[in-house]
Design a protein around this nucleic acid. Structure first.
Lengths: 224, 224
DNA sequence: ACCTGAACACCGTTCAAGT
DNA sequence: ACCTGAACACCGTTCAAGT
């Protein structure tokens, strides 16, 4: 098992990320060390530092891969699409062991891509006409929803992990089910706080209810 | 600085937690090791294992201390009280370096106290009469709000930390301000998703709108 | 009751050197 | 261009032994 993958072939960033992701699945984030990863690749630990600056950068790449796997969603109303994107992101995070925590810490450190934020923002805009959009509000709403998704998924996932080791009273299935209810509830609550969506094709009926609340700031999209 | 605290006096759980908390402030969570903590206490690393089972248990105690420092809130309407408790919890998390992450991972592992959850649940109940309360809903709403708080605070805090090291474009103050807006927004959105609060003193006007949506389950309070 | 001393099995990262 | 070998400065945890 040690050097079984140790062909004479050299490694590539993508290949290393592949192995890191499957190692994450087997061992979990706390045991995903550079040394173990090197062993799995049949290589010395120091070899990894030719491909990645450091462990954080490697984990950021893993996080991006996890988020990129989030499924596309069917078209629908604004709220339907936001909910669908949110569920797709949640599913992607929960699809890999410690996926949520990996993505959360990467996002927090300002590493990794904006993919999750961008998908939420796109769904929030929907098919509204440009006149109905306050870019600052869209960005902020996307950040808020993403913060909930990551907080929720991190808690849920570590709870599942704890249950697997018998530290928790409930079974894995119970947790997965009851927390899915929590997620739907949180999403429902958050969507209730959005302004009413502008009716499609009703160009010119500018909903200014939100813009009036907030001082105008730069429309530069902040990375999440 | 090494053995300066090393009186002949022996240590206690509380004293160790004190030192751990101030070490957290100085070094951050990644550098808060058992060995460094032992050095700060003027003791061998192994001595810590007489007081705590392991590092997780120690961190759980630190997390509890952080949450316990959340300020009490003035009485008010249900939404006012929930918002006040949420802000108090956020402030407590942000008051210590890496506080949010410490509490998040402790909560996730099922360690630490329920204090944060309980305070939110109490605010959600407010002064409603028992007939107006669906315990399952209160617990779920508290979990959802806590998930948002922890997700938000973890992201914000690690972002502040990254800014301190120059990894982020914005200054610390800008981040603190703009993220406070995000938090208020998220809270507003979540509160909009709650059912209308029962008017105080209107006993008997049972709002069943929420209870009808959800199957009745056990009213046992789940630990968050 | 509380701690020392020594050990075990690990870490991330750097850097000269090899091919 | 990609990797080895060796080293540096660390980890968490256990356990016999001391006082």
């Amino acid at each position: 098992m040690d050097a079984r993958d140790a062909r004479a072939e050299r490694h590539t960033r993508d290949g290393i990320i592949d192995t890191a992701l499957s190692l994450l699945e087997q061992t979990g984030l706390p045991d995903l060390s550079m040394r173990r990863l090197a062993t799995a690749l049949g290589v010395q630990p120091s070899a990894l530092y030719w491909h990645f600056e450091n462990k954080q950068e490697l984990l950021a790449a893993v996080a991006d891969r996890i988020v990129a796997a989030a499924q596309p969603v069917a078209p629908g109303s604004r709220d339907e699409e936001v909910a669908a994107v949110a569920h797709a992101l949640r599913d992607a995070l929960l699809a890999h062991r410690d996926g949520a925590e990996t993505v959360l810490s990467t996002q927090a450190l300002g590493l990794g891509s904006d993919a999750a934020h961008l998908r939420l923002a796109a769904a929030l805009v929907g098919d509204a006409s440009p006149a109905d959009i306050v870019p600052e509000d869209v960005q902020a709403d996307a950040r808020v929803i993403l913060q909930f998704i990551l907080g929720h998924a991190s808690l849920v996932q570590q709870r599942i992990q704890a249950a697997r080791f018998g530290a928790f009273p409930a079974g894995e299935a119970d947790i997965a089910e009851s927390t899915a209810d929590d997620f739907a509830r949180g999403l429902r609550m958050l969507l209730a706080g959005l302004p009413a969506a502008a009716p499609p094709d009703a160009a010119g009926t500018h909903d200014a209810s939100r813009a009036a609340d907030q001082p105008m700031r730069s429309a530069t999209p902040l990375r999440q």
